[in-house]
Amino acid sequence: MMRLPPFTYVAARTLAEAAAALAEHGADAMLVAGGTDLYPNMKRRQFEPKVLVGLRGIRELAGVRGSAREGLTLGAGTTLAAVAAHREIVTHYPALATAAGLVSSPQLRNMGTLGGNVCVDTRCNYYNQSFEWRRAIGFCMKKDGDVCLVAPGSPRCWAVSSSDTAPALVSLGAAVRLVGGGGERTVPLAALYHDDGIEYLAKRRDEIVTDILLPPVDGWRSAYLKLRRRGSFDFPVLGVAVAARLEGAVVRDARIVLGAVASRPRLAEKAAAALVGRRLTPELIAAVAELAAGPSKPLDNTDFTHPYRKKVTRVFVARALRALGGLGDAGRAVEAIA
């Protein structure tokens, strides 16, 4: 049986306690909420923290506050199942509800949290393997080694951002509140990520993600499409989140975000800009989809082939846009559209 390595467990009851524990144990400590990402990684010895700071007992981390009109505040400890089923989110921020509802399996969504999914470790099929497997191949730079096995000449790690909710949230213009020893700060969620498989979070070690803030809905529509082999369990090997504000058929504002094709959620800015001020016609959609596929640069370290993931980027962007514009069949992968 795969078992966890031993650790010290700190059951924090308040944010202050958690922050203090992080400060005290420094690099030896890690945070755990749902445990659905961390525990498997620990069993494979990808992480061997001496101290785990448990966030489950912190009441202020759970729950959704506010309204779509004024903006929502989602506690980082809210489970993915709760996010996916939340009526206000389903109605007004469908990209997020869809993304949360497509994470792994029903059981895992009952356990995993939104904060956990936003911070989910980057993945790579040279890295998400047992200690023995990684030792057999000679380890990689993300853990215990010094080369990148997917791009051996590369000075950086190419592990893949594998969050479903992150691209959806970035497309919705979400912000994130962080609380640490030095106080708290709120930054756009897009600023939480680096394009680096190892240092993928722009978060200090002592900081805790406490809330995700969604802006007032203000006429934005959104959609999320996920590519993966099976309808359950699988991480995204491509996620496409599109949000747009339309007046009639004319796009006033838009964001297109690609997940699982880089070490961070990748904004397709040129593609989004090409939409603004234009009518959402099939021709425009085709052109924008082509532009959006530009920044999609998957490598051969997930399920499916990387050329295939790149090809589907174009298809999914077009489908998401068609769905937002009410232009007919959006394909099977669109689960919910506002």
Binding site: Q129, S130, F233, F235, D303
Partner: peptide, 8 residues
């Protein structure tokens, strides 16, 4: 793919 997740 020696795992239940990666072996589909």
């Amino acid at each position: 793919t020696p795992s239940m997740l990666d072996y589909k």
